[in-house]
Design a protein around this nucleic acid. Structure first.
Lengths: 340, 340
DNA sequence: CTGAAAGCGCTTACAG
DNA sequence: CTGAAAGCGCTTACAG
């Protein structure tokens, strides 16, 4: 059973394809097609179950009304929070979203950008992977608007929306110091992108400014490519050796793994070790004790990014098309009460 | 800057569009196009950065090489686990996935099926919503293969892949009884679909078979439409009034909310109350104490569903195209040790 | 070995 | 008020 096309309708009604197209696109009034014909066309279209072929429209008009969203990990917590908002927001403008995840692999990321391009998506929202600069510039040269999420490349000037990573970590470290923690450990990963670099930089700077010297043995870089098991083990070994008074995890998944490591070590939070995490997770507020976090304004990030992209696509003239850096929210829970 | 098309290449090389198409599709050898020309075409195509327009191909061939995946909730845990596997599996066959989420709303679900249809997806994987029977039958009448996930309609014969819900719950209840729990509560939701009905049925049957009579005040149905806050409150009020020895949550998100309610009530697990949940969650294994669960074989579900869909699409003749019911895995952790 | 032509389903000037 | 025609980028018989 074939899909019904404009031609089928035209044949049934006894008119031309153009007329059917005009009517079904609501332009009947404008070109003054008779009410009788209009009604008849609409009736037949409905009865036959006509659905326009979006592929054909995209091919003809050059616009697909699809936004490509390339994230690092489609099963991650950040994506889960993001996707919902983005989907709802772009829907207001009649756009749909195609998601894909790079797994933080350059090769995969490049491939997916090409794929999205081949599918003629109108605009891109991308969590960039190191080394992707060229592909992104090419999209922009092709006239396709791009908004980078969560990170950006310092050398290129693509529009980006992200949280104030430096400020967020700085607040966290300051909080720990005020609570009386001195020997503070930092666990981050080897993502060679600005958001992680900023977090690391903020950690070192803030300690230095407080007159605390940072020992390299209090800093752990966990490779992204390790599997979960290995990562937990590395964190465990690290904490066991370094014996910090508090630990700051630079990403929520590291925090989750960190908690597992801490449980394995049978350490009590916050008595044996204070814990704070950059980026919230469902698990943290439910954990006993609940984990203090620096929360990213995910809703706001998504909304801002969509607004900018829509502005670039010619909707919503009011919105600025500039990059944005949003403030993180510090949430103190029970994992950072120093007891000594 | 325009995208480069076959025509552009043909013009540059000084040959015809057909020849370029043939060569670039690897059919050059078959129709014996000269090596010299082939090489030249390939070189120019690469230099110009040619990418085939998938829309045009889809329009022309009637195949989009896209699978539509309609889930209940794109930010849910089940989706997160599913998406990754499905994406990887269908990739082997050259397919891509478009995701959308119905939010368990019939109206939204219907709309999304229409949308996927308009985008000419070749096959569907759907977590069905009550009332969707007609739309799904229509897809099948249009010759589009469909595999239902997680549930199905008892009246229609669509292919489906799901876990043995009845068996899973039955195991859980039996376990509780063996551990000495008698007053067992059941928390489920008002999803009017087979998976939830089966879980409910299994709960009542198993208790009855053990000679324990089920009191209606030990059963709570939490409306899906309530917001999270309300749901937690309802569970809390319910547990406080019913004072069960153990509680079985019929879905992982209910378990997560249930834990919050239990913490609010200051009840100790497993001393004050035993807890078991159908469907695992990252949070459960990390929780103190870790929560006993009935785990769905998500990987296997996804793989099976993909295999069946691909078989229906004409790949992989070896695979059966029959519906499948997979066994759940019971994982005993520390939340169900009766202490009295 | 290679090219001209039709056609997928649509939109949009253009002509009448 | 309505229709014939071109063209988006591609594939695929068909002809030579």
């Amino acid at each position: 059973m074939k899909n019904v096309s404009l031609k089928d309708i035209a044949l049934k009604v006894g008119t031309s394809i153009s007329t059917v197209s005009l009517v079904l696109n609501g332009k009947g009034k404008k070109v003054r097609i008779s009410d009788a014909l209009s009604r008849k066309i609409k009736t037949v279209a409905k009865k036959e179950g006509y659905h326009p072929n979006k592929m054909a429209i995209a091919l003809r008009t050059g616009k697909s009304n699809i936004i490509g969203l390339l994230v690092d990990n489609i099963s991650g917590h950040f994506f889960a929070a993001l996707a919902e908002v983005i989907e709802r927001e772009v829907d207001h403008y009649g756009y749909k979203v195609i998601y894909c995840s790079s797994g933080n692999e350059l090769r995969k990321g490049k491939e997916l950008i090409r794929l999205l391009h081949q599918h003629q998506v109108d605009g891109y929202m991308i969590i960039p992977v190191a080394g992707m600069e060229k592909e992104i510039s090419e999209l922009e040269e092709h006239g396709k608007p791009v908004v980078l999420l969560d990170s950006y490349f310092s050398k290129t000037q693509s529009t980006h929306v992200l949280v104030d990573n430096y400020g967020g970590i700085s607040t966290a470290v300051t909080h720990l110091i005020q609570r009386g923690y001195q020997k503070i450990a930092f666990v981050y990963n080897n993502l060679a992108m600005i958001q992680m670099k900023e977090r690391k930089r903020a950690f070192s700077d803030t300690l230095k400014q407080a007159g605390i010297k940072t020992a390299p043995e209090l800093i752990l870089k966990v490779p992204l490519t390790d599997n979960r098991q290995e990562q937990v083990l590395k964190i465990k070994t690290f904490l066991d050796a370094a014996k910090p008074e508090a630990v700051l995890f630079a990403a929520n998944y590291l925090g989750v793994q960190g908690l597992e490591a801490i449980h394995n070590l049978q350490l009590k939070i916050p008595d044996d070790i204070g814990v704070i995490c950059f980026d919230d997770h469902e698990l943290f507020s439910l954990h006993q004790p609940a984990i203090t976090v620096v929360q990213q304004p995910v809703q706001e990030l998504a909304k801002t990014a969509v607004a900018i992209l829509m502005a670039k696509l010619g909707h919503e003239e009011t919105t600025s098309k500039e990059s944005a850096e949003l403030q993180a929210t510090f949430i103190e829970r029970q994992s950072t009460t120093y007891k000594k």
